[in-house]
């Protein structure tokens, strides 16, 4: 049973304001661990998550644990057990941390009252003691990292079958990148995660599998290690840092340093170094 993928996507196409942003995306997310969704800037990673959530106009088939969810409204998709952590956290700034979390609490699926299991509450408390201490603070006054934790906590409070997490380390300080990565690693032990991540160090540490998008399509899928340990494929598929004119041999010869600079196309250098150090 555990080998069956939790999410199967076939021929997913999506539009934003009438403009096609995804073309025939097909992918599978295994029922355990982290699957990284990778690709150059602007290839449609965020759009893929939004399309899965029903936040943008989409067509194609999406099956969650074998049940089709592609015709469901966003809130119904979520109620089927999908947690979403959007790209820019999207916490409710005028609400307190406690209110943000309270809003996220869903009824237990089988018609129960709003509320979450004590285990989940404990998990969130263990993972994010910082934000529990700040329950009565307005989320808008939190730092970026704390907001990210609120966003993750909102998704982790409920018993989900799958989490969709969009660039959780974007713009965070190096220390926080490490904390968020730790939290995700623990979260992935209880729920499978589809993770969009530009920071390849984080992706390398967390992801068991990887799917690569290019031009709105899937161009690679397989074990993350196969891809991420192969510099030439990383450059070819993700294009990080590499200038169009640079040859592959150059990359290979400068193995380690080149790797770092690639990551830094999205993240500041110290950030990356620290994240590397924590791994």
């Amino acid at each position: 049973m555990s080998t069956r993928p939790v999410l199967v996507v076939r021929g997913l196409t999506a539009r934003i304001a009438g403009q096609q942003v995804l073309e025939d995306v097909s992918l599978e997310v295994p029922a355990r661990g982290v699957t990284a969704l990778l690709g150059r800037n602007g290839v449609g990673k965020t759009s893929t998550l939004k399309a899965l959530m029903g936040l943008i106009e989409r067509s194609g088939t999406i099956e969650l644990d074998g049940e089709p969810v592609d015709r469901l409204a966003t809130h119904k998709v979520v109620q089927r057990g999908v947690g979403y952590v959007p790209e820019d956290r999207e916490v409710f700034g005028s609400l307190t941390v406690a209110e943000n979390l309270r809003l996220a609490e869903r009824s237990g699926g089988r018609g129960g009252r709003h509320g979450v299991s004590p285990e989940r509450r404990e998990l969130v408390g263990d993972l994010f003691p910082d934000i529990i201490d700040r329950s009565s603070q307005r989320a808008g006054t939190l730092s970026g990292g704390q907001q990210q934790m609120v966003a993750l906590a909102r998704a982790l409070l409920n018993e989900n079958r799958l989490l969709l997490v969009d660039e959780p380390t974007k713009g965070l300080s190096p220390r926080l990148v490490g904390e968020v990565t730790d939290a995700l690693e623990k979260a992935a032990q209880v729920v499978p995660v589809l993770l969009v991540e530009q920071n390849l160090t984080v992706a390398r540490r967390l992801a068991g599998d990887a799917v690569v998008l290019d031009g709105g399509r899937v161009v690679h899928a397989g074990p993350a290690a196969d891809l991420l340990d192969d510099e030439s494929r990383v450059v070819a598929l993700l294009g990080v840092g590499g200038e169009p004119g640079q040859s592959q041999s150059q990359h290979q010869s400068q193995h380690q340093s080149q790797d770092q600079s690639q990551d830094q196309s999205q993240h500041q250098s110290q950030q990356h170094d620290t994240a590397e150090a924590t791994s």
């Binding site: 934003i16 096609q20 942003v21 602007g42 290839v43 031009g215 709105g216």
Partner: peptide
């Protein structure tokens, strides 16, 4: 909306 949602094809579109 973030810039990363715009695919390379947007120029033609």
């Amino acid at each position: 909306m973030s810039t990363s949602t715009t695919p390379p094809t947007s120029r033609e579109d």
